[in-house]
């Protein structure tokens, strides 16, 4: 069935696929995860703060991001980020933003909504008694959050956060719609140039599968180890 397929095309383009493509994918995944968790945690704290002035915008933001497809958001941000930059810096014209920065901003802001919900669940999983205890010890709100609540919430939610990261890793393939050379973009460029669709797309599927599967097995092992016995 694979008689007239040329799997040599994969060997010939390995360097490009991994050195250019996969590097982009992994860096984007790592930075967007880090950014998403930081911003997502802030959103979660805002939602749980009890101040409508903070909670309402944060809730609105999260609901907005969760109602809209990522593809649409990628387009939005690719075109909008320079104007946002102009608005933020007060420059006279849209500031120049490269495709990497644009996609990083898009993924960070989009995934933050999902990370927010995870962190919110994590924070809510901490018993109120701990808050009371921290207060009784004279700790301020930032201290309570920073030393007591967030570390535990983070630990409780680590497996879920990592699972979301694997989803993010897969989602980065959507930058294909902007012709950016991520792993899938690289594979499709070679596929289209050499007319080797079957080989390249199968190979891409295998690579994504191996990485995601290995990572999710790792997360599973980790969640057994970090589980807190109550």
């Amino acid at each position: 069935m694979f008689a007239n397929f040329d799997f040599d095309v994969i060997a010939r383009s390995l360097r490009y696929l991994f050195f250019d493509g996969m590097t982009f994918t992994l860096i984007l995944t790592a930075l967007a995860t880090a950014g998403g968790i930081v911003f997502g945690t802030m959103l979660a704290l805002m939602r749980l703060s009890g101040f409508p002035l903070l909670a309402v915008p944060a809730t609105g933001y999260v609901n907005l991001m969760r109602s809209v497809p990522l593809v649409l958001m990628i387009f939005w941000f690719y075109f909008l980020v320079p104007y946002i930059g102009q608005w933020l810096t007060g420059a006279e014209r849209p500031i120049q933003v490269g495709y990497f920065t644009s996609s990083l901003v898009a993924f960070t802001l989009f995934e933050a909504a999902y990370f927010c919900e995870i962190m919110r669940a994590g924070i809510q999983s901490i018993s109120r008694g701990q808050l009371a205890a921290a207060q009784a010890l004279g700790m301020s709100y930032p201290q309570t959050m920073g030393y007591i609540v967030l570390p535990q919430a983070f630990r409780n939610m680590l497996p879920v956060l990592l699972t979301q990261t694997i989803i993010l890793f897969q989602d980065t393939s959507l930058v294909y719609v902007l012709s950016i050379t991520d792993f899938l973009g690289a594979a499709s460029k070679v596929a289209q140039r050499d007319g080797r669709l079957v080989e390249m797309y199968l190979f891409a599927a295998v690579v994504y599968f191996v990485i995601s599967f290995a990572a999710s097995q790792g997360v599973r092992a980790l969640s057994h180890r970090t589980a807190i016995i109550r």
Partner: peptide
């Protein structure tokens, strides 16, 4: 089906 990006599955 969970470990391959949806976009790649569409292409397949």
């Amino acid at each position: 089906f969970r470990n391959i990006p949806l976009l790649v599955q569409m292409f397949l």
